[in-house]
Design a protein around this nucleic acid. Sequence first.
DNA 1: TTGAAAGCGCTAACAG
DNA 2: CTGTTAGCGCTTTCAA
Lengths: 319, 319
Amino acid sequence: MTINDVARIAGVSKSTVSRYLNDGYVSDENREKIRSAIEETGYQTNVFARGLKTNRSKLIAIILPRLDSFTSIQSLNGMNTILSQYGYQMVVVPKNTIEEDEITYLRRITTQGIDGIIVLAHAITDDHVAIADSSKIPIIFVGQYHPQAHTITLEDFEVGKQVAEYVNTLDINHVLYLSVSESDQSVGVMRKQGFLQHLDNPVRTLITGFQQKDAYEIMKRESETIKYDIVVGATDNIAIGALRYLHDHGVEVPKSVKVVGIGNYDLSHYMQPTLTTLHIDYQTLGRNAANAMLSLLEKDFTYTLESVDLELIKRDSSQ
Amino acid sequence: MTINDVARIAGVSKSTVSRYLNDGYVSDENREKIRSAIEETGYQTNVFARGLKTNRSKLIAIILPRLDSFTSIQSLNGMNTILSQYGYQMVVVPKNTIEEDEITYLRRITTQGIDGIIVLAHAITDDHVAIADSSKIPIIFVGQYHPQAHTITLEDFEVGKQVAEYVNTLDINHVLYLSVSESDQSVGVMRKQGFLQHLDNPVRTLITGFQQKDAYEIMKRESETIKYDIVVGATDNIAIGALRYLHDHGVEVPKSVKVVGIGNYDLSHYMQPTLTTLHIDYQTLGRNAANAMLSLLEKDFTYTLESVDLELIKRDSSQ
DNA sequence: TTGAAAGCGCTAACAG
DNA sequence: CTGTTAGCGCTTTCAA
């Protein structure tokens, strides 16, 4: 079934059918004939033929670190709710299964029939920006700010601030803050600064990775020599790693040491004790990214950036 | 950069370049010229033009219930490791964001430039089979067996059996088994049968949903009137729902009542008490599905179905 | 082993 | 508002 069949049955030319399918500009009479011809034939437009002319596929590639990451999946979910409304589908590409270099990969797929790329990033390098610049399709980075690229971010400074303000209400003296590498501008720099600048108590900062075991390890190696009565993790996973370390070493939480995380991962309310954390609505982050993408793709598409809800969830690990 | 540019630079015809890109049948001399022309130009084949002739996109659609499901994501992960090796990418479609009827949706995308569809299903209806039959592209159903469709499944009878055998070793008298609707042939029928047929103790079976809260609710409504000293959930989520109910009602686990789940979701070792469960390697399930798909898509592709690891993980909730 | 040529199904000028 | 026409970039006969 091609557009020709529909045209023949409807008794019009294929351009009229094409017009019906796209802009409009068809008389009511023909419009009805075409509609019924399409219904009769079950015609579906051939995406390859259309793409050959228009270079549009209604496919957005989403590059993310791993599939088993709570925050990535939440964002993905948010994106999908928006994208699917406009007929876009997501090509999901977990970075950990890409064999080539990320930059090479990005460059390659910019010409592979995809309409846009959303990258959930922990860092934006000059190479990333260069590719985004030279690419014919839009690339949006989520989670990291960069002045020369399309980026959608959390207000990480505010995130850090809100957590600090909560910590200030607690009856504690020495804070241990577990951060991540400063190559991550958002979590490693802004979030940390927001936290440190608003904190009233003395604090020691340690740098670790995003995995629970990274946090566990750094606690094992370093925490013995540090005086602290609260551990704040830059993410829930980090806080959970610390919590497990404390648990394994007989430290009572929250009695001897309190623990606070950031992100409100689903795990956090299953922990024992349940983890106090700042809820971050990652679905909104995803929706923002999707809307930003659509605004670059669809003309007359407008949207307003939703502000991402932050809410302190007080649980047992801090009280 | 088109195939014409490459042909011009290499000093051959575009058919020769096309042959170089596909089958072969090019002299060594020309082969080298073309290779270097491609390198020089950074040529990438236009997927729309190729698709128009070949109807191949190297895209596999994966339909899954929701994105926030542990088992789905694990399977997805497994699929991706295989598919990406062969240059295929996944178009991920969460069912909960599809507005139209699932059957309509399936029928629609079979003609939308996708090479194959993998459906993570809780049930296979006649409509599903009809579409799979009439579709020009392969459709594989994962998780549910059906004699007239391509299906990849777990050995759910064996799953039930292994759990029953473990329960038989425990010092308990009355079993409460929380199952799901029999419309789910795998979990609702086979898994249950495997369990019931190998169990030595008396058992009461209750039907609930896949969500924790479903299990929580059924416990609230029904468990008071039932005598049991162990609850076995057909999935970890169900077991966790029961565990939370017991916890909220002051029942000591495992002292008064033991709890066992199936699946080994990541949550399960965060529970308090940690949940005894049968580990199921869903990544292998995903790999099997991907391999099955490739065998339908790529000629000369052979594979052997991997058997899905099952392993009983004894944790605190049962001992 | 190669090149010429036809055409995949569609969109978008353009002329009417 | 409609039809004619010219490709989009590629693969695939076919004849050489």
